[in-house]
Design a protein around this nucleic acid. Structure first.
Length: 111
DNA sequence: AGTATGACAGTCA
DNA sequence: CTGACTGCCATAC
């Protein structure tokens, strides 16, 4: 059987994102070995919509912009979830994104 | 098999 | 930092 596919891999990492932390699509894609497939990560998360266990709200683009907020149920649900984790969000952009940034290539690989 | 789409990233100005 | 253009990969039709 073919691998679970790109999606399951993205799910696995996204689920491992710690509380109050955020990461970017490129970081996940790079961890999968395809730094060029950042768009696929977004696509995968799109399918992750079917899974509530996937904190997709912790995944944003490289600028820390809630690019996927428009895809959530509520228009401001994504921001609400982030603020619920002590993550400050202003103008759809995560504040202190560089501090809250959680890189799987480091956190997962290093440990 | 080819075209179109997509929650992006990198580079240049 | 922001805006515009290009590149790249995987899925769907």
């Amino acid at each position: 059987m073919t691998n679970e596919g790109f999606f399951s891999q993205v799910y696995g990492i996204t689920k491992q994102i710690p509380f109050g932390r955020v990461t970017s699509y490129g970081a996940i894609a790079r961890y999968l070995g395809t730094p060029r497939s950042a768009r696929m990560v977004g696509w995968a998360l799109n399918a992750s919509h079917l899974d509530d266990s996937i904190p997709a709200h912790r995944v944003v683009n490289r600028k820390g912009l809630l690019s996927g907020k428009h895809h959530f149920k509520g228009s401001n649900l994504m921001q609400q979830l982030l603020e619920n984790e002590n993550v400050r969000v202003e103008n759809n952009v995560i504040v202190n994104f560089d501090k809250l940034f959680w890189d799987p290539n480091i956190e997962l690989k290093m440990q």
